[in-house]
Write a protein that binds this DNA or RNA. Structure first.
Lengths: 159, 159
DNA sequence: CGTGTTTTTTACGAAATTCGAAGAAATCCT
DNA sequence: AGGATTTCTTCGAATTTCGTAAAAAACACG
């Protein structure tokens, strides 16, 4: 896989803002040709560096209850638990971690009732879960989504 | 703001898979005209229901160290701490929560060294932080991103 | 350094997509 | 039912994307 250079990062940064920016427009902004933008993008896509998606607002879709749940699992059952959790549509993130919790998941619900039902009926039925610490999101301050860090692009700006 | 109907959700679901799907293609799949797709999308964009973005792979960008950090803050300083944390480029998510931790953040680093530096130099300098539980991501099982839950679209499929 | 090789970038015409706007169809309200 | 409003379709024009071939740049190695 080819190294990602500064031009790639600049392209990614523009697309992070608006994933539908025309290649011609990106080319114009970066003062390169459309063909270059196109070949860079298809290489990056091919290498799995990024993909075009949309970012929906959960609240606007009615998902008002957002949670992060830390879980502890029985030794040896962690992976199985993680895979079962991954199946659930309410769960959007599942990761294994070092630290206080073996697994941390993020889940979204239409209501508190649905959340309680999730904890009492779904989680409790999964074998290997020893405990679950539910944290309810009260307010969101940042959710940036941009892994191309602005500081990184800026540093090379003068190079 | 107009209610989001089933057709909107179908459009969103297609775009979740590939944010650059042409409107003509969406129209074809859903057996409606391109104009309808276009007007729906511009309404949804206008209402802030979604936006076109790209999803980059942090690991491919060199961000190998992914963490979730639970923080406890001094009473009354929570908001200020949250806002300071939001400024940091390493931090991509900041939320206030009920539960064991007042704030939960997600942060990404190029190396363990950078992480240690972040905890020792950056976090420790922020006034109002009482404690930080760092969880290091060992493995990711799911990171779906799709808030239009498949089950929801399916249910209405017969309506 | 210089020359051959490979990679990247540019250029350009053809195909596809997007856009604006106007008319048709459907929905809503009373 | 009838008029008003919203949503949907249609269609030509403008723009973008795509394929490809040639130019330019970067690279490798004697």
């Amino acid at each position: 896989m080819k190294r990602i250079d500064h031009l790639d990062r600049q392209i990614l940064q523009i697309l992070q803002d608006d994933g539908r920016t025309p290649y011609t427009e990106i080319a114009h902004q970066l003062k390169i040709s459309e063909g270059t933008v196109r070949s860079r993008i298809s290489r990056l896509l091919h290498d799995g560096v990024f993909e075009f998606v949309i970012r929906t607002d959960p609240v606007k879709l009615g998902l008002n209850v957002q949670t992060i749940i830390g879980l502890n699992t029985k030794l040896g059952l962690q992976q199985q638990v993680a895979e079962e959790l991954s199946q659930l549509p309410e769960v959007r993130f599942v990761g294994a971690f070092s630290g206080k919790h073996d697994l941390i998941i993020q889940a979204f619900f239409y209501s508190n009732t649905e959340l309680i039902h999730f904890v009492n009926e779904r989680l409790s039925r999964i074998e290997g879960i020893l405990g679950a610490d539910v944290s309810l999101e009260l307010r969101q301050y940042k959710d940036s989504f941009s892994y191309v860090r602005e500081d990184e692009v800026a540093i090379n700006e003068k190079g």
